[in-house]
């Protein structure tokens, strides 16, 4: 499929086929954006995994972290940059280090909804009231749903998969 796509794009550019050229351009733009950050993200995750002690993660995000664990998750999520495909490996890594699942799912939710750069764009374009409403409604719901989903999955001994491990 990848080869087919490459051929399609090449032919589009040669024959000046507009939709094909457009698709090629969008693909190129997104690739650049992601390829620039992805290696860094994975290197940082790799270093995080060898340096940070399991006890540290467990203490703040683990079984006895209580409500503070959720707050950390929101904060971490808010400072995560980039799309979902960056939050997922980070979530997996946190989970592997002993963060409990409700906290991990809260992190994923916050990484989608509360990213700080995005929030600034939102508030400047749509008004601060709009942002406040969205936060006030979505954060409690994210925590609540993550708590329920996380506990349910914990009882089923669910773990987030390590990608790349056969």
């Amino acid at each position: 499929m990848i080869a087919g796509f490459a051929v399609f794009i090449a032919v589009s550019f040669l024959s000046d086929f507009l939709p094909g050229k457009n698709i090629g351009n969008i693909f190129y733009k997104y690739c650049l954006e992601i390829i620039v950050i992805l290696p860094c993200v994975f290197i940082l995750i790799g270093l995080f995994e060898v340096w940070i002690k399991r006890e540290t993660v467990e203490k703040h995000l683990g079984k006895n972290s209580g409500f503070a664990g959720y707050m950390w998750a929101i904060l971490l999520g808010g400072t995560t940059f980039g799309p979902m495909l960056i939050a997922l490996p980070i979530a997996r890594s946190l989970s592997a280090k002993g963060a409990r699942l409700p906290v991990v799912f809260t992190y994923l939710g916050a990484a989608a909804a509360c990213r700080i750069p995005m929030t600034i764009f939102e508030a400047t374009n749509l008004g601060i009231a709009f942002t406040i409403i969205r936060y006030a409604v979505s954060i409690p719901l994210i925590i609540l749903s993550s708590a329920i989903l996380g506990r349910y999955l914990e009882n089923k001994n669910y773990t987030i998969r390590e990608v790349g491990q056969k």
């Binding site: 499929m1 790799g46 060898v50 495909l85 490996p89 790349g164 491990q165």
Partner: peptide, 22 residues
């Protein structure tokens, strides 16, 4: 060791990533 982990994960998602971007 950390770099190896990083590479393994990057390699693990590489082709899927290209497909998703397509």
């Amino acid at each position: 060791q950390g770099l190896k982990k990083a590479w393994k994960q990057l390699y693990g998602i590489g082709s899927l990533l290209v497909l998703v971007l397509i």
